[in-house]
Amino acid sequence: EIHIRTNGEEQARKVYKMLAKRNYDVKIEQHNGQWVVTAS
């Protein structure tokens, strides 16, 4: 499982799309105001 911390919604969405293209199961979560993308 991969966790990627991003500094904002826009970046989180870019990372989300990139990983989704590679057939990862991707989730975006917010932790303490930080956007974290989780891929498995």
Rank of each mutant, 00 (worst) to 15 (best):
R22K: 10
T38E: 03
G33W: 03
K17A: 13
T6F: 15
V36H: 08
A39N: 03
E10S: 11
N32E: 09
A20D: 03
R13K: 11
I2H: 05
E10M: 11
W35M: 01
M18Q: 07
Q11H: 11
K17N: 12
D25Y: 12
V26F: 02
A20T: 09
G33V: 03
R22E: 06
I28M: 08
Q30L: 11
A20F: 08
V15R: 03
E29S: 11
Q34M: 12
Y24P: 04
T38Q: 04
L19V: 01
Y16R: 05
T38I: 15
R13F: 07
K27W: 07
A20P: 00
N7V: 08
T38N: 03
D25A: 11
Y24G: 03
S40A: 07
I28H: 00
E10T: 09
W35A: 01
E29T: 12
G33T: 04
L19A: 01
I4G: 01
V37A: 01
T6L: 14
V15F: 11
E9D: 03
R22V: 05
E1I: 15
G33E: 06
K14R: 13
K14E: 08
W35E: 00
K17S: 09
K27R: 11
I28P: 00
T38H: 08
E29V: 11
K14T: 06
N32M: 08
V26E: 00
W35V: 01
I2A: 03
V36W: 14
A20K: 15
R5T: 11
T6I: 12
K21Q: 12
I2W: 14
K17C: 15
A20M: 13
T6K: 03
R5E: 06
K27I: 07
G8W: 12
N32H: 07
V36F: 12
V26Y: 01
W35F: 05
Q34P: 01
K21D: 13
Q11M: 11
V37Y: 01
S40K: 13
N32L: 07
Q34E: 10
A20G: 04
I2G: 02
V36Y: 13
W35S: 00
R13A: 05
G8Q: 11
V15Y: 11
K17P: 01
N32I: 03
E29W: 14
R5W: 15
Y24N: 04
R22A: 10
E29H: 09
K21H: 08
H3Y: 14
V36N: 03
R22T: 05
E10W: 12
N32W: 05
G8V: 12
R22N: 07
I4F: 13
K21C: 15
A39G: 07
V15N: 01
N32Y: 06
H3F: 13
I28T: 02
H3G: 03
A12L: 02
A12T: 02
Y16S: 07
Q30A: 06
N7M: 08
V37Q: 00
T38S: 07
Q34N: 07
R13I: 08
L19Q: 00
R22M: 14
I4P: 01
G33F: 04
S40F: 12
A39M: 11
K14G: 04
V15D: 01
Q34R: 08
E10A: 13
Y16N: 02
A12P: 00
R5K: 09
D25Q: 13
V37M: 02
R13D: 03
E1F: 15
Q11S: 07
K14L: 11
E1Q: 13
I2K: 04
G33S: 05
K21A: 14
A39V: 15
Y24H: 05
H3N: 08
A39Q: 03
M18K: 06
D25S: 11
N23H: 14
Q34D: 07
G8P: 02
R13Q: 07
V36T: 06
Q11V: 08
T6Y: 10
H31M: 12
I28S: 01
K21L: 12
V36G: 03
V26M: 02
G8L: 12
H31V: 13
M18I: 10
K14Y: 12
M18A: 10
V36D: 03
E1D: 09
S40R: 13
R22Q: 09
R5N: 05
M18R: 06
K14Q: 09
K21E: 12
V15K: 03
E10R: 13
G33P: 01
K27G: 04
L19E: 00
Y16Q: 06
N23P: 03
E10G: 08
I4D: 01
Y24A: 05
D25M: 13
Q34I: 14
Q34H: 12
T38K: 09
E1V: 15
E1G: 10
V36L: 09
L19F: 09
Q30P: 04
H31P: 02
K14P: 00
R22S: 06
H3D: 03
V15H: 03
Q11P: 03
Y16T: 03
V37N: 01
V36M: 08
E10Q: 10
E1T: 14
H3W: 13
D25V: 14
M18N: 05
N7R: 12
R5S: 07
S40V: 11
V37W: 02
V15C: 15
H31C: 13
V37H: 01
E1M: 14
A12Q: 01
N7P: 06
I28Y: 03
I28A: 02
V37E: 00
E9Q: 07
I28D: 00
Q30K: 10
K17T: 11
N23V: 04
I4K: 01
A20R: 13
M18W: 15
E29M: 11
K14I: 10
K17F: 10
I28R: 01
N23K: 08
N32G: 10
V36K: 03
K27N: 05
I4T: 02
V37S: 00
K14V: 07
T38D: 02
L19G: 00
H31R: 11
I2Q: 02
K17G: 06
N23I: 04
S40T: 12
Q30H: 11
Q34W: 14
N32D: 10
A12F: 02
N7H: 09
E29D: 06
Y16F: 11
R5F: 14
A20L: 15
G8H: 13
Q30V: 13
Y24T: 04
K17H: 10
Q11A: 10
I2P: 02
V26G: 02
Q30C: 14
R5Y: 15
R5Q: 07
H3A: 08
A39S: 05
R5D: 03
H31F: 12
K17Q: 12
K17D: 12
N32A: 09
N7T: 11
S40E: 05
A20E: 07
R22F: 12
Q30W: 10
G33Y: 03
R13T: 05
L19H: 01
H3M: 13
Q30M: 10
I2V: 07
K27H: 08
Q34A: 09
V36I: 13
G8F: 13
H31N: 09
A12Y: 01
K14S: 06
R13C: 15
R5M: 11
L19R: 00
T38Y: 09
H3V: 15
I4N: 01
K21V: 08
R22Y: 12
L19N: 00
Q30G: 05
K27A: 06
H31G: 04
Y24S: 04
T6R: 05
I28V: 06
M18L: 10
E29Q: 10
G8N: 15
A39P: 02
H31L: 13
N32F: 07
R5V: 14
G33A: 04
L19W: 05
R13L: 10
V37T: 01
Y16G: 10
V26L: 04
I2D: 02
E10N: 09
M18F: 14
H31S: 09
G8A: 10
V15A: 05
V37R: 00
I4R: 02
G8M: 10
E29P: 00
V15P: 00
E10H: 08
T38G: 02
N32Q: 08
E29K: 08
R5H: 11
T6H: 04
Y16K: 05
A12D: 01
N7F: 12
I2L: 08
A39H: 05
K21N: 09
H3L: 13
A39I: 15
E9T: 04
H31E: 10
R13W: 14
I28N: 01
Y16V: 06
E1L: 14
M18C: 15
K14F: 11
K14H: 07
R13H: 06
Q11G: 05
N23Q: 08
